[in-house]
Structure formats: structure tokens, C-alpha cells
Simulated scan of single mutants.
Amino acid sequence: MKIEVLFPEYCNLFADSSNMKYLQQCLPEAEFIYTDYMSEPVFVTETVNLIYMGAMTEHMQSMVIKKLMPYKERIVELIKQDVPFLITSNALEIFGRWIENEDGTKEKALGIFDFYAKRDMMHRFNGLVRGHFGDMPIIGFKTQFSMAYSQEFKYPFIQIDRGTGMNPKVNVEGIHLNHFYGTYLVGPFLVLNPLFTKYLMKVMGVEQPVLAHEAVIMDAYERRMKEFMDPKVEF
């Protein structure tokens, strides 16, 4: 089993790198390939069981778009082939149509999904999210300078119960198509959502997924879920 982590030297903000640190503890036999920015991604020529990319600076978003644009058709092909992707925080914006700056200028992104991001660098948004993916509860944190917009979010990942979705006017969060899972949530996402982590391992081909430190992480999850269910907690 191969897991490719894209550009870990840059895409590691908000503890997002801990997503793969935890997954590595869950899958000690798996091969984790950490592809640096100067190298060709392994997914271009090989079969992998998961492609992961996490949060980055706004400047790095431009660099990552430039890096991945030649592989756009390959990425689309892999999504159609049900290859799992986990994309967190503002890395999700790389897969939209464009990223708009405060002055109205737009930077073309990969254009794989029909949404765009709009930056407001003078106002960082921080908040909590509680929602569900199917019948699976999902919780997490948001910290971002941008929101995402679309006439219709056709492929939502999380239905929001409390908190802010892709923007304050919609109750959906993230992108889910086949086995592509993209979300603005940070935290790190896999540690905060062990039920989804187990689900993801199944999607990756693990027949009987086992969580590392399962008793501890499930206890923490249940405690946090109780907190997120408290109506007094501000989202």
C-alpha cells in the first residue's frame, strides 16, 4: 500500500501534517512517500492508495497550482478511477476554478470543480463546525482568510449542523466526488474524526481497519463531540 503526501515541506500549516503522522501509526506496514516540490509526483506514473495535501501559504498556493497544472488530466483520471484523495484546509482551493484577491484579480486554479475562492487577508475567519457525512458525525475547526462560492455546490462532503459551510450562506462544506474528500477543516482532521479515519482506510483497501491508540482517541472524540453538542458553545 502506497500513500503519497504532496509537498510536505510547504503544505504543513495548522498541524495538518499530523494527519499523515497519525495515519502512519494506523498503517505501519504502508509505504508513505513524501514528494517534495521539485520532484514529479508519484501518482503521475504509479498507482497509489491515497493522495494527501494539506494547508499552505497563499504564495505557495500559486506555486502548487503551477506545479500541478501539467498533471490536471491525470488527476481527473484518478478521481474517476476512485483513487482516494484527502485534501485539507486551503489546499482545496487548488482544485477550484480560480482564487480571487481583494483587488479583484483572479488566479486560475486547476478547474476540476466548479467553485472559486475569494480572499480577505485583513480578516481571518475562525470557527467550529459540526456536521455529518452520511450518518457519520464530523467535527472540526476552521481558520482561513478565504471563503468558497459557487452557483451550486454539486458535490458537498459535509452537511453542516452548526457552524459555517463553504461560505456563511450555505450549509454544506467541502467537496466529495467518488473517493475525493476535500475540506477546509483543520485540526488535524483525521485525529479529530476517527470514525472517518476508519472509513478512509476501508476506502483505501484495508479490509479490517484498526485505529492506533483506539481507546484513547475514541474517548477524546466522544468528549469533544459532547462539547460540540452543547448549545452554549459558540460556533
Rank of each mutant, 00 (worst) to 15 (best):
I138A: 09
I139Q: 08
G140T: 14
F141L: 11
K142S: 14
F145I: 01
S146R: 03
S146M: 06
S146G: 03
M147L: 12
M147G: 00
M147A: 09
M147Y: 11
A148W: 03
A148L: 08
Y149I: 02
Y149C: 08
S150T: 05
Q151I: 00
Q151N: 15
Q151T: 13
F153Y: 10
K154V: 10
Y155P: 07
P156L: 10
I158C: 10
I158D: 06
I158F: 05
I158K: 11
Q159I: 01
Q159S: 12
D161P: 03
G163S: 01
G163L: 00
T164F: 07
G165T: 02
G165R: 02
M166S: 11
M166K: 07
N167K: 09
P168Y: 01
P168A: 01
P168F: 04
P168Q: 03
K169I: 00
V170C: 14
V170L: 13
V170T: 15
N171I: 01
E173S: 13
E173Q: 14
G174H: 02
H176Q: 15
H176N: 15
H176T: 12
L177A: 08
N178Y: 07
N178A: 08
H179L: 02
H179K: 14
H179T: 15
F180I: 06
Y181T: 11
G182F: 07
G182I: 09
T183Q: 01
Y184A: 05
Y184H: 13
Y184F: 08
L185H: 03
V186F: 07
V186I: 13
G187N: 07
P188N: 12
P188C: 00
F189M: 00
F189H: 06
L190G: 03
L192G: 02
L192C: 08
L192V: 06
L195N: 14
F196P: 13
F196E: 05
F196D: 04
T197A: 14
T197G: 06
T197Q: 08
T197S: 14
K198L: 14
K198M: 09
K198N: 07
K198E: 13
L200G: 12
L200S: 08
L200Q: 06
M201P: 14
K202E: 15
V203R: 08
V203A: 09
M204W: 07
M204N: 11
M204H: 09
